[in-house]
Every structure is written in structure tokens, then in C-alpha cells.
Amino acid sequence: MTMDFPTVLFYVFASILVLSALRVITARNPVHAVLFLVLSFFNAAGLWMLLHAEFLAIMLVMVYVGAVMVLFLFVVMMLDINIERLRQGFWSYLPVGAVIGLIMAGEMALILGGRYFGLEALPAPAVPAADYSNTKELGRLLFTDYVYPFELASVILLVALIAAVLLTLRQRKDNKAMNPSLQVRVKAADRWRIVKMDAVVEAPATPAADAQEGGKA
């Protein structure tokens, strides 16, 4: 028992992360796969928290788990996916997939191994002081040194947003959708009006007429 507590936590988070990431690609049900992806995001956030990067960790949960994956789940649940058909031709695609996978693994090994990201190149950062705020530091950097790339990224995102809206926007002639902003502007006076009328008093039927009618019946 020589491991300290953060190290134990690291192995817990890392092992759950790897296992759930594996389940994302092996789960038969796509909804399960998405939920495993959510779990792996959580554990990645836990790892970042261990690195004192609380802003990144919370943002990962807030943006990816709280918004992106919800919409993802939304779409996957709506799809009528035939799992058997998806699995067809698995073996014929396998060689190509395996080659691509191996190339990716090799490239990552080249970069992440020793020379650039090893312990000699990147020693463990000093433990920050107690009053260090990761959020404040990131905010300061984003709005001073990196303000140009930051604004550029936001403009690109905005363009992508508008493009996505424009691509899916169809204005059909026979669209019967209602316009809520017009509807809420309706006043009671547009729909009905109160008319002043004199009271109409019906003359009481005379007993004679009654008797006549009764006689007819």
C-alpha cells in the first residue's frame, strides 16, 4: 500500500474510462452505446479534476454530457436502427478498419511516446497554490493572449450554426404551422365584442291561446 489517494482515484477513473469507451463500440444497442459514452465523458472529467483543471472538467460535463449527448441520445432514440443489418459485412470491412486503426495507434505512439510527452520532456507540473483558480487563469489567457483565435473560433462556430439552420430550413407552401408571436398579440376585442341591446320581454302567452292549442292536440 504505497499508492496515495489521488493515484488510486486515477486508476479507478482510468479503468472505468477505458472499459466504458470499449463498450461504446461493442454495445449492440446504440442507446446503450451513447450512455456508455456519457459514462466515459464523466470519468474523463474526473481525470481532469485530478489534474487541478476544474474548469475543463466541469465544462466537459456541462457542454458534452449536459447538452451535446442529450441531443445525441434524442437522435439515436428516434432512429429505427436495424442492428442485424448494421452488422452485415463486418468481416469484409474488418481488414480496412484494422489497417486504419493500426496507423492511428502508430501515429499516437510516435507523438505520445518519450520524446515529446514523456516524463523527461514534460515533468509533472508543480501543485498549484491553494488560492489558484483554474477558471480565472483560463479566462485571463483566453481574453488577452489568445483573444484572436478565441474570437475566430466563435465566428466559425456561428457560421456553422447558421449553415446548419439554412440547410434544414424548408419553407413549404402548404405549411399550416401557426405563428405564436402573432397569436399572443391577439386581444380579447379582436375575437368578440359586447353589444348593448335592449332587453326583449316576451309577452306571456294568454290562457285562451293555450286552451286552443290544447284543443288541437
Binding site: E54, F55, I58, V61, M62, G66, T135
Partner: peptide, 11 residues
């Protein structure tokens, strides 16, 4: 980061 935590958890 209390506010961020609240937003993340309530989402």
C-alpha cells in the same frame, strides 16, 4: 467554481 458546478449538475 460553485456556479459552474451547479450548472453542470443541474443539466
Amino acid at each position: 467554481a460553485g456556479v459552474l458546478y451547479l450548472l453542470a449538475v443541474s443539466s
